[in-house]
Computed example of a mutant assay.
Amino acid sequence: MEDVRLRPATLADDDFLYDLHRRTLGDVIEATWGPWNDDVQRQFHQAWFTPETIEIVLVDGQPAGMIQAGPADATTFYVSRIEIAPEVQDRGVGTALFRVLVERAKEAGSSAVELHVLELNRARELYERLGFAVVAVEHPKIRMRLTL
Rank of each mutant, 00 (worst) to 15 (best):
E2C: 14
V117M: 12
F16P: 01
V113Q: 02
D3F: 05
F132L: 03
L120C: 11
R5H: 02
T50F: 08
L115W: 05
P35M: 12
G92M: 12
P35E: 15
F16H: 09
V135T: 12
L126E: 02
Y18R: 08
V40N: 02
Q68P: 02
T95S: 13
R143D: 04
I82L: 13
A47S: 11
A136S: 10
A123V: 02
T95I: 07
T147F: 00
T24L: 04
A108S: 10
G70E: 12
S80M: 02
T10N: 13
D27L: 11
A69L: 09
I84W: 01
G26V: 00
Q41W: 00
T76C: 03
Y127C: 05
D39A: 13
V40D: 13
I54Y: 05
G94I: 13
P86N: 11
R104D: 06
N37E: 15
V100R: 15
R143G: 09
F44K: 07
R143W: 00
E128P: 13
M144T: 04
A105S: 01
L17D: 10
I82S: 09
Q41D: 05
D19L: 13
E55G: 12
L6T: 08
E2S: 14
I82C: 01
D27E: 15
M1K: 12
L115Y: 02
V4D: 07
N37R: 11
A31R: 14
Q68H: 02
D38N: 07
A12T: 08
T53L: 10
H21R: 05
L118R: 09
K141S: 11
V100I: 10
H139L: 10
G61L: 15
V135H: 00
R42G: 02
A12K: 03
A105T: 03
A108I: 06
A105Q: 06
F132C: 01
I142R: 05
D19C: 12
V4T: 04
V79N: 00
K106A: 04
V135Y: 02
W48D: 13
L58I: 08
H139P: 14
I82P: 00
F77M: 01
V100G: 01
Y78M: 06
E125Y: 03
H116D: 14
R7K: 03
A64W: 05
L58F: 10
A47C: 08
T32A: 09
G65F: 08
A105Y: 03
A96M: 01
Q89Y: 09
T32K: 04
L25F: 03
Q43K: 14
F98K: 01
L146K: 06
E55P: 09
A9R: 05
P8I: 00
M1P: 13
D15L: 14
V113W: 06
G61C: 12
K106T: 10
A85H: 04
L20R: 06
V79W: 00
P63N: 08
H45L: 11
M66P: 00
E107L: 09
V59T: 13
I82T: 04
G65N: 06
V88Y: 07
L20N: 05
I82M: 10
Q62I: 15
E87V: 11
R7F: 01
L101D: 07
G65K: 03
Y18P: 03
F16G: 11
L20F: 06
F77Q: 06
T50W: 10
E55W: 12
D14H: 15
P51S: 01
V102L: 10
G131R: 08
V113L: 09
